[in-house]
Design a protein around this nucleic acid. Structure first.
Length: 119
RNA sequence: GAAGGAGACCAGAUGAUCGCUCUUCGCUGCCAGGCGGGGGGAGGAAAGUCCGGGCUCCGCAGAGCAGGGUGCUGGAUAACGUCCAGUGGGGGCGACCCUAAGGAAAGUGCCACAGAAAACAAACCGCCAGGUCCAUGCACGGAACGGAUGAUCGCCGUGCACCGUGCCUGGUAAGGGUGAAACGGUGCGGUAAGAGCGCACCAGUCCCGAUGGUGACACCGGGACUCGGUAAACCCCACUCGGAGCAAGACCAAAUAGGGAGGUGUUCCCAUUUUCGACCUGCCGCGGAAGCGUGGUGGGAUGAGGUGGGAGGCAGGUUGCUCGCCUGAAGCCUCCGGGUUCGGUCGCUUGAGGCAGUCGGCAACGCCUGUCCCAGAUGAAUGAUCAUCGCCGUUCUGAAGUUCGGACGGAACAGAACCCGGCUUACGGUCCCCUUCGUCC
RNA sequence: GGCCCUAUCGUCUAGCGGUCCAGGAUAUCGGCCUCUCACGCCGAAGACACGGGUUCGAGUCCCGUUGGGGCUA
């Protein structure tokens, strides 16, 4: 098991980085969220979050962001070459329990690995 | 037990593992930073942004008009549209609750439908008196007319009386199905009919005086009266209001780019000047016969410049308008490193602060003493998982007659963004007190 | 975060506190016309965001919620 911390340098912080990932990254879909993923030259992976006001109130939005951050923290070693990831929450994420987050996140990343090996 | 009313309080707890953020200490590292230990880490509403302040900036914030806000009294407060205590009014059987509650006798406007009439009070119907017209009765008189004739009667004229109807004049405001609201209400007297016209009781308005209260006001006595409502319609009166907002504002580094600050500067007028130019003139020197020329010096008036003052114009700012005030300009001079974007730092949490206590005050609150430091993120921290305990609900079986045990489920509203004081809205529960009703003792 | 505006049938909109009070257009439905559809004609149903207050009476005036929309780096 690798490093499970999540420091501030491991987060996307400026609009330019977000725009780069949205335009050039690969798009992966799940019922709870949309994943944009783009390989990076940084020595670590970076996470960005996008939770719109349509998801719910400020309490709901904060909870969704915390859960997504927690999932990324625990499973970021699945990103084998370091990548920038932007997670856009969908409206179903408001009422889902935390275990579903982990299961879907891992399935998306593993499916990507398989597709890469086949290619 | 049911239905309510008022107030206070809490916002599950503990532990383990993995994390986030701030701070502090130690070690390490040239620096950036890294490692380890300690401490802190969402709310009663953090929300809505409806008020009020602090703080910061703005060409100082001035006057008048306009505009906004507030509106019983006294107090609290940094301030408030907030709070406390009271007064008046309204609601409720009651505990208690609500109350933008100044002025309608300063003026203007409005009051649909219905109704005689919607605001100065009058017009209409009705009632009463008088006059007049017509009809009737009685009395007197007349003889033209009618019934075959006479009497009688009918007929005609005059006078009187009274009923009815219409008209005119006058008196009335008691009554008039309406309406949210109709010029006090009831009774007696009074009158041609009536009327506060008079009297008694009641209701209300205004004024004066006495008492109590700081005051709103209460209560008592006297006098004048009987007067619509609406100001969350315009308005009047009193008080009050500069604007923008931490994305305010200050600073640093890099890139790009060539800027910023101060002064002068436009038109006119006045004063002053050891400035300058040309003009007029007096005196002196030189030249000339003379007009005159030339040099020096004094005076006058004028123009340009400098300095000081005043007035005006252009563009803009000052919430709107007028005044006032302020700023700016093409160019020139002087001085300086500054401006914009992105990033970072500060602002940034020690404050009208919390807690405890004494004292003053009915209270809101204030004074004093002691003690504590209690979130500061910025693509935006305060979380995830597990265990135990505690609370509530459902169900099960066993003991048992309302407790224990097992299983399952639930735990509201909601997330700081400069900071406070309020208001409003959302919402789970606990405790205490009070009211009404029912039942039992 | 801060500062503002606004709300009327499904949609776009009128509306001077009162019998024009909820009007108009379009969409919907039914009928007529046509061989049928369209156009046209006739008719119907359909709204004052919510809760209080002022007033005799609120869509309108005042207060508070809720929902939309805009500006600002």
């Amino acid at each position: 098991m690798g490093d499970q911390r999540l420091q501030s340098m491991e987060r996307l912080r400026c609009p330019r980085a977000y725009r780069r990932v949205f335009q050039q990254g690969k798009k992966l879909l799940s019922p709870l969220f949309v994943l944009y993923i783009l390989p990076t030259s940084q020595p670590h992976s970076r996470l960005g979050l996008a939770v719109s006001k349509r998801i719910g109130s400020a309490v709901v939005r904060n909870r969704v962001k915390r859960r997504l951050r927690e999932v990324f923290r625990r499973h970021k070693d699945l990103l084998n070459p370091y990548c920038d990831v932007v997670v856009v929450a969908r409206s179903a994420a408001a009422n889902a329990p935390a275990s579903v987050y982990t299961e879907q996140f891992c399935r998306l990343l593993r499916g990507r690995q398989c597709g890469k090996q086949e290619a």
